[in-house]
Write a protein that binds this DNA or RNA. Structure first.
Lengths: 118, 118
DNA sequence: TATATACTGAACTAGATGGTTCAGTATATA
DNA sequence: TATATACTGAACCATCTAGTTCAGTATATA
């Protein structure tokens, strides 16, 4: 039984903050893919796609393996556990705040206040 | 009943990709805070902290309100629903891949292959 | 062996990010 | 009224990002 060191959340959240990369994860969920096929699918140069894959790889979300001249990409073994954990833990904080009394109070005293000055 | 347009996942995942900003969310979970108190807590200039809060605000994760000379920050009403949803949906993909047969097969044929050539 | 395919790496671009300083404005307090 | 507090905005900086092109290497295929 191997321990996977979860790369810091910084890396995985940053990886997920790009729609192309989320799309790549979608795609790999439907089957492994080469860099070329991904580049075609997302209308991008090979080099550009390689960079995206590298970002996902560094975040531990994707693993790749080169056989012959083809590098095959697949979803990584460590999934989105750490991210799900952080989000779930913090969802509770948001819910708690939402129910809090001062929420309603501050809602009521919306006078004389500069709600969102630039 | 108000509809909150969930800012694209790009913005929220990017907001969450910085440890300071995740810390700010932690902190606001324990109570509302001014820009100054956050800047103190995270050892940063006011201006720097203001920028972090703005990023969180644009992602919809934090709301602020200025009363007098103090801008108070609190957790936003829309929580981490959209993010949790995306992650949960995609966790399943990872699990499915993990159990897939070709995982084991490719594990077995780890010969003659350049696993992660730079 | 010649050619096509699949990737790799270096170098460049425009624009974002995470931080700073410094000079302001607005509001409280003495 | 004078001073301190809390923020705001502009400008700057170094670094990262998302993409490109172009020139190369390695592997298959005819």
């Amino acid at each position: 039984m191997v321990q996977y060191i979860s790369p810091p959340l910084d890396l995985s959240f940053a990886a997920l903050s790009d729609a192309t990369r989320r799309g790549i994860i979608d795609q790999l969920g439907r089957g492994d893919a080469s860099i070329t096929s991904l580049a075609d699918k997302f209308q991008m140069t090979l080099t550009g796609m390689k960079k995206h894959v590298q970002v996902l790889e560094q975040a531990g979300l994707v693993v790749t393996q080169k056989v012959g001249r083809v590098r095959t990409c697949k979803l990584g073994k460590r999934g989105l556990e750490a991210e799900a954990e952080w989000i779930d833990a913090h969802r509770k904080l948001f819910e708690a705040r939402f129910e809090a009394l001062d929420e309603i109070i501050s809602e009521m005293k919306q006078e004389g206040s500069d709600d969102s000055a630039s």
